[in-house]
Protein backbone atom coordinates (compact mmCIF):
# COMPACT_ATOMS: atom_id res chain seq x y z
CA UNK A 1 0.00 0.00 0.00
CA UNK A 2 1.30 3.43 -0.92
CA UNK A 3 1.87 5.76 1.98
CA UNK A 4 3.38 8.70 0.12
CA UNK A 5 3.11 9.53 -3.53
CA UNK A 6 4.59 12.66 -5.11
CA UNK A 7 4.23 13.63 -8.74
CA UNK A 8 6.27 16.35 -10.38
CA UNK A 9 6.99 17.91 -6.98
CA UNK A 10 8.68 21.30 -7.37
CA UNK A 11 9.62 24.06 -4.99
CA UNK A 12 11.01 27.46 -5.86
CA UNK A 13 12.35 29.87 -3.29
CA UNK A 14 12.58 33.54 -4.02
CA UNK A 15 15.48 35.15 -2.19
CA UNK A 16 16.69 38.66 -2.90
CA UNK A 17 14.93 38.59 -6.27
CA UNK A 18 16.69 35.35 -7.24
CA UNK A 19 14.64 32.23 -7.77
CA UNK A 20 16.20 29.07 -6.35
CA UNK A 21 14.74 25.88 -7.78
CA UNK A 22 15.10 23.67 -4.72
CA UNK A 23 13.05 20.85 -6.24
CA UNK A 24 12.35 20.50 -9.95
CA UNK A 25 9.82 17.77 -10.46
CA UNK A 26 10.31 14.84 -8.12
CA UNK A 27 7.96 11.93 -8.57
CA UNK A 28 8.40 9.22 -5.98
CA UNK A 29 6.23 6.77 -4.19
CA UNK A 30 6.80 5.07 -0.83
CA UNK A 31 5.01 1.96 0.30
CA UNK A 32 4.12 0.92 3.81
CA UNK A 33 7.17 -0.41 5.59
CA UNK A 34 9.68 1.44 3.44
CA UNK A 35 12.97 2.32 5.14
CA UNK A 36 14.24 4.86 2.64
CA UNK A 37 17.20 7.23 2.70
CA UNK A 38 17.26 10.45 0.68
CA UNK A 39 20.86 11.38 -0.04
CA UNK A 40 22.61 13.94 -2.12
CA UNK A 41 25.01 16.84 -1.85
CA UNK A 42 24.26 19.84 0.26
CA UNK A 43 21.60 22.02 -1.35
CA UNK A 44 20.26 19.21 -3.47
CA UNK A 45 16.78 19.53 -1.99
CA UNK A 46 16.63 16.74 0.62
CA UNK A 47 15.18 18.85 3.43
CA UNK A 48 12.83 20.61 1.06
CA UNK A 49 11.49 17.27 -0.09
CA UNK A 50 10.86 16.01 3.45
CA UNK A 51 9.21 19.28 4.48
CA UNK A 52 6.85 19.23 1.54
CA UNK A 53 5.92 15.62 2.19
CA UNK A 54 5.31 16.54 5.82
CA UNK A 55 2.95 19.38 4.87
CA UNK A 56 5.23 21.92 6.52
CA UNK A 57 5.26 24.05 3.36
CA UNK A 58 3.33 24.38 0.09
CA UNK A 59 4.86 23.03 -3.13
CA UNK A 60 5.24 25.40 -6.08
CA UNK A 61 4.01 22.69 -8.44
CA UNK A 62 3.17 19.00 -8.36
CA UNK A 63 1.10 16.98 -5.94
CA UNK A 64 1.56 15.02 -2.75
CA UNK A 65 -0.77 12.31 -1.60
CA UNK A 66 -0.54 10.85 1.88
CA UNK A 67 -2.29 7.49 2.08
CA UNK A 68 -4.20 8.41 -1.04
CA UNK A 69 -5.29 11.86 0.20
CA UNK A 70 -4.30 14.88 -1.89
CA UNK A 71 -2.65 17.27 0.53
CA UNK A 72 -3.24 20.38 -1.60
CA UNK A 73 -6.98 20.02 -1.13
CA UNK A 74 -6.62 20.39 2.65
CA UNK A 75 -6.82 23.67 4.54
CA UNK A 76 -4.19 24.70 7.08
CA UNK A 77 -6.13 23.28 9.94
CA UNK A 78 -6.72 19.94 8.24
CA UNK A 79 -3.05 19.77 7.34
CA UNK A 80 -2.26 20.27 11.03
CA UNK A 81 -4.67 17.48 11.90
CA UNK A 82 -3.06 15.27 9.24
CA UNK A 83 0.39 15.87 10.73
CA UNK A 84 -1.00 15.26 14.16
CA UNK A 85 -2.50 11.87 13.35
CA UNK A 86 -0.29 10.37 10.66
CA UNK A 87 3.17 11.92 10.51
CA UNK A 88 6.02 11.90 12.95
CA UNK A 89 9.00 14.25 12.58
CA UNK A 90 12.58 13.90 13.70
CA UNK A 91 14.88 16.84 13.08
CA UNK A 92 18.61 17.19 13.11
CA UNK A 93 18.28 19.76 15.91
CA UNK A 94 15.96 17.51 18.05
CA UNK A 95 13.52 20.42 18.58
CA UNK A 96 12.18 19.32 21.94
CA UNK A 97 9.90 21.77 23.78
CA UNK A 98 12.27 23.20 26.41
CA UNK A 99 9.67 23.88 29.13
CA UNK A 100 8.36 20.31 29.02
CA UNK A 101 10.06 17.27 30.57
CA UNK A 102 11.09 14.36 28.34
CA UNK A 103 7.95 12.48 29.32
CA UNK A 104 5.72 15.50 28.67
CA UNK A 105 7.34 16.02 25.28
CA UNK A 106 6.43 12.49 24.35
CA UNK A 107 2.96 12.73 25.89
CA UNK A 108 2.04 15.91 24.00
CA UNK A 109 1.24 14.30 20.58
CA UNK A 110 -1.08 11.80 22.26
CA UNK A 111 -2.85 14.45 24.30
CA UNK A 112 -3.31 16.48 21.13
CA UNK A 113 -4.95 13.40 19.62
CA UNK A 114 -7.41 13.38 22.49
CA UNK A 115 -6.02 10.39 24.34
CA UNK A 116 -6.77 10.35 28.07
CA UNK A 117 -4.02 11.70 30.27
CA UNK A 118 -3.27 8.42 32.07
CA UNK A 119 -3.24 6.36 28.90
CA UNK A 120 -1.02 8.94 27.20
CA UNK A 121 1.40 8.85 30.10
CA UNK A 122 1.78 5.11 30.16
CA UNK A 123 2.14 5.03 26.35
CA UNK A 124 4.79 7.72 26.57
CA UNK A 125 6.62 5.89 29.34
CA UNK A 126 6.64 2.77 27.20
CA UNK A 127 7.94 4.74 24.21
CA UNK A 128 10.72 6.22 26.33
CA UNK A 129 11.62 2.74 27.52
CA UNK A 130 11.72 1.56 23.92
CA UNK A 131 14.33 4.18 23.06
CA UNK A 132 16.31 3.22 26.14
CA UNK A 133 15.41 6.17 28.34
CA UNK A 134 13.59 4.36 31.08
CA UNK A 135 13.42 6.47 34.22
CA UNK A 136 14.63 9.67 32.54
CA UNK A 137 11.15 11.02 31.83
CA UNK A 138 11.39 13.80 34.40
CA UNK A 139 14.44 15.42 32.86
CA UNK A 140 14.19 18.63 30.95
CA UNK A 141 15.79 18.67 27.45
CA UNK A 142 18.67 20.85 28.61
CA UNK A 143 19.54 18.24 31.22
CA UNK A 144 20.15 15.57 28.54
CA UNK A 145 22.89 14.77 26.04
CA UNK A 146 22.35 15.21 22.30
CA UNK A 147 21.87 11.47 21.80
CA UNK A 148 19.36 11.31 24.64
CA UNK A 149 17.47 14.27 23.25
CA UNK A 150 17.30 12.68 19.83
CA UNK A 151 15.97 9.50 21.42
CA UNK A 152 13.25 11.56 23.08
CA UNK A 153 12.50 13.11 19.68
CA UNK A 154 12.23 9.63 18.18
CA UNK A 155 9.98 8.47 21.01
CA UNK A 156 7.85 11.57 20.44
CA UNK A 157 7.59 10.78 16.72
CA UNK A 158 6.75 7.14 17.15
CA UNK A 159 4.56 7.21 20.23
CA UNK A 160 1.40 7.97 18.28
CA UNK A 161 2.18 5.10 15.87
CA UNK A 162 2.06 7.25 12.74
CA UNK A 163 2.04 5.67 9.33
CA UNK A 164 4.99 7.84 8.31
CA UNK A 165 8.08 9.14 10.07
CA UNK A 166 10.11 11.83 8.34
CA UNK A 167 13.62 12.33 9.68
CA UNK A 168 15.84 15.10 8.40
CA UNK A 169 19.46 14.10 9.07
CA UNK A 170 18.58 12.54 12.42
CA UNK A 171 22.14 11.51 13.22
CA UNK A 172 24.09 14.47 11.88
CA UNK A 173 24.63 15.98 15.32
CA UNK A 174 25.63 12.71 16.96
CA UNK A 175 28.84 10.75 17.16
CA UNK A 176 28.90 7.67 14.97
CA UNK A 177 28.30 5.15 17.76
CA UNK A 178 25.25 7.04 19.00
CA UNK A 179 24.12 7.53 15.40
CA UNK A 180 24.33 3.81 14.89
CA UNK A 181 22.21 3.21 18.02
CA UNK A 182 19.58 5.60 16.76
CA UNK A 183 19.48 3.92 13.38
CA UNK A 184 19.20 0.50 14.96
CA UNK A 185 16.30 1.83 16.94
CA UNK A 186 14.58 3.19 13.86
CA UNK A 187 15.16 -0.06 12.03
CA UNK A 188 13.67 -2.07 14.89
CA UNK A 189 10.55 0.10 14.87
CA UNK A 190 10.27 -0.27 11.15
CA UNK A 191 10.51 -3.99 11.51
CA UNK A 192 8.21 -4.38 14.51
CA UNK A 193 5.53 -1.77 13.77
CA UNK A 194 5.81 -1.56 10.01
CA UNK A 195 6.29 2.19 10.25
CA UNK A 196 7.40 3.86 7.03
CA UNK A 197 10.64 5.83 7.45
CA UNK A 198 11.98 8.43 5.05
CA UNK A 199 15.20 10.00 6.24
CA UNK A 200 17.78 12.26 4.67
CA UNK A 201 21.52 11.97 5.19
CA UNK A 202 24.98 12.68 3.82
CA UNK A 203 26.45 9.85 5.77
CA UNK A 204 27.52 6.71 3.93
CA UNK A 205 27.11 4.64 7.09
CA UNK A 206 23.51 5.81 7.41
CA UNK A 207 22.80 5.08 3.78
CA UNK A 208 24.00 1.55 4.35
CA UNK A 209 21.13 1.02 6.77
CA UNK A 210 18.54 2.01 4.19
CA UNK A 211 16.78 -0.62 2.19
CA UNK A 212 16.10 1.97 -0.44
CA UNK A 213 18.36 4.83 -1.46
CA UNK A 214 17.25 7.88 -3.40
CA UNK A 215 19.91 10.33 -4.47
CA UNK A 216 18.89 13.88 -5.27
CA UNK A 217 20.96 16.28 -7.29
CA UNK A 218 19.99 19.87 -8.05
CA UNK A 219 16.40 19.19 -7.14
CA UNK A 220 16.00 16.13 -9.30
CA UNK A 221 16.16 12.41 -8.60
CA UNK A 222 19.66 11.45 -9.72
CA UNK A 223 19.49 7.76 -8.96
CA UNK A 224 17.34 5.33 -7.07
CA UNK A 225 18.37 1.93 -5.79
CA UNK A 226 16.75 -0.65 -3.63
CA UNK A 227 13.01 -0.51 -3.91
Amino acid sequence: MTVVETTGLSKDYLTNGLTVHALRGVSLSFARGDFAAVAGPSGSGKSTFLHLVGCLDEPSAGTIAIEGEDVASLGRRDQALLRRSRIGFIFQAYNLIPVLSALENVTLPLVLLGESRTAARSDAERALAEVGLEGMGNRRPKEMSGGQQQRVAIARALVKKPSLILADEPTANLDSATGRDILELMLALNRDEGTTFIFSTHDRMVMDYARRLIVLKDGLVDSETGS
Binding site: A80, N95, P98
Partner: peptide
Protein backbone atom coordinates in the same frame (compact mmCIF):
# COMPACT_ATOMS: atom_id res chain seq x y z
CA UNK B 1 9.84 30.87 16.59
CA UNK B 2 11.53 27.50 16.20
CA UNK B 3 9.54 26.06 19.08
CA UNK B 4 6.32 27.38 17.58
CA UNK B 5 7.29 25.65 14.34
CA UNK B 6 7.80 22.38 16.20
CA UNK B 7 4.44 22.67 17.96
CA UNK B 8 2.83 23.13 14.57
CA UNK B 9 4.81 20.21 13.12
CA UNK B 10 3.45 18.11 15.98
CA UNK B 11 -0.01 18.95 14.73
CA UNK B 12 -1.05 21.80 16.97
CA UNK B 13 -3.58 23.96 15.16
CA UNK B 14 -3.17 27.70 14.89
CA UNK B 15 -5.94 28.08 17.48
CA UNK B 16 -4.06 25.94 19.98
Amino acid sequence: SKETGMLRALGMTGGQ
